[in-house]
Computed example of a mutant assay.
Amino acid sequence: MDVDNAASESPVTGNGVIDIEQSFLQQFSCMGTTDRDELIQQLQKLLGTQLNYSTAAFFLDMNNWNLQAAVCSYFDYENPNPLPQMKLVADPFANENESVEPNVRFKKTWHVSNSGNETWPTNCYAQCSDGHNLGGDRVPLPCLNPGEGFQLSVELEGPSVPGIYQSKWRLCTSKGSYFGDPMWVIVTVVEEGTIALTNQLSHFNELGALPPTSNAYNPFSPHQIHIGNNQDVAPPDGQKDSSMF
C-alpha cells in the first residue's frame, strides 16, 4: 500500500492535517444502498410528488448520491426563506379518547401557537406525516400572527381492527415543508360494546356505595339543646328541656 500517495490525494485542512474523518463519513453515508433508482424514489417520497425523476436525480448526483445531503440541498434551493415556527402549547385532551370502538368517529384537539417572528404564510395545513392516519384529512391553517394561538382539531375514526394505533401529525407549508413541533394521536381500539359494558359496571359500583353519613341537628329531639354557636349538647341529668313545653 502506497501510504505517501494515499496521503497526498486525501483532503487536507488549512493546517495541512489530513481530514480523514470527513472523508470516511462521506463514504459511509452513501453505503445505505447503491441502487440509484431506489435513492431517487426515496427522495421523491420524502419531498413529495412535485419532484420529478430528473430533478431528484440532479440533486442526488450533485451530492454524490447522498440522500440526506440531497434533501438539505433541495430545501436550501427551494426555501431560501426560513420556515414558519410553531409550538405545541398543550395537548388538553390527551386522555379523552384513550379507547374507541371500531369505526367510531372522534375528534382530536391540540393547542398550538405561532412561536416565530413572522406571520404564517397562506395555504399552510396540518396532515398525518407518519403512522396510521386514522381516516383524517388535511386541515387548513389560519395565518397566525406572532404569539397567537388556536385550537387545532382533526376528525378521526377508529380502525376496524382492535389494537393500539399511533398517528403523527405535522404542520406543512404550501410547498410541502414540515415545520413546528410534532403532534401525536395514540388510541386503543377495543371490541364493540366494551366501553358500554365498562360504563355499566362503573354505574353499578356507584349504586352499591354506602350513603354518606350525616350529623344534621334535629330540633325536635328531647335529648339536645341548641345553643348560639350552632353546637348541640345534651341537657344535664334530671333537667328537662324547657323548649319542649
Results as ranks from 00 to 15, higher is better:
T194F: 14
Q50K: 09
P92Y: 08
P212S: 07
D2W: 00
N117K: 12
V104M: 11
D4M: 09
N66E: 06
A196F: 13
T173M: 05
A7H: 11
D76L: 12
E101C: 07
Y53P: 07
N103D: 14
A56I: 03
P219R: 12
S73E: 01
N114L: 07
E21W: 05
G163T: 04
F245H: 12
V190A: 03
K87P: 00
T109G: 02
D4I: 04
R105E: 07
W169F: 10
M62T: 04
N66W: 08
D241Y: 02
L25A: 07
K168M: 08
T119G: 10
A7F: 11
E148W: 12
S160G: 14
N95H: 13
T213V: 10
L134H: 10
S8Q: 14
G48A: 01
Q68W: 01
F106Y: 14
W184S: 03
A90N: 13
W65A: 01
W184F: 15
G116Y: 00
P236C: 04
F93D: 09
Y74L: 06
F93N: 07
E155N: 14
S115G: 05
L43R: 05
S29P: 02
M31L: 10
S54D: 12
N95F: 12
T119S: 15
L43V: 00
L67Y: 03
P222M: 01
Q166P: 10
P121V: 05
G14C: 02
Q231F: 08
N215Y: 14
S115R: 02
V89T: 08
P140E: 11
N79L: 14
N81H: 05
I20R: 13
T173Q: 05
R105K: 15
T198M: 13
W169C: 02
H111Q: 11
D37N: 14
K175D: 07
Q27F: 06
T213S: 13
R170Q: 12
L83Q: 04
L46D: 09
W120E: 01
W110Y: 11
G158T: 04
N230I: 00
D130F: 04
L46Q: 14
V71A: 01
P84S: 06
E118S: 10
D232H: 11
G149T: 01
A94N: 06
N145F: 09
L152H: 11
P92E: 04
E78A: 08
P222S: 02
N199L: 12
P102W: 12
Y74A: 07
D35W: 06
A57K: 08
E9G: 04
G48C: 01
P82K: 05
H111R: 15
E118N: 09
I20P: 00
Q44R: 15
A126C: 14
P235W: 06
P140K: 07
A70E: 00
E98Q: 09
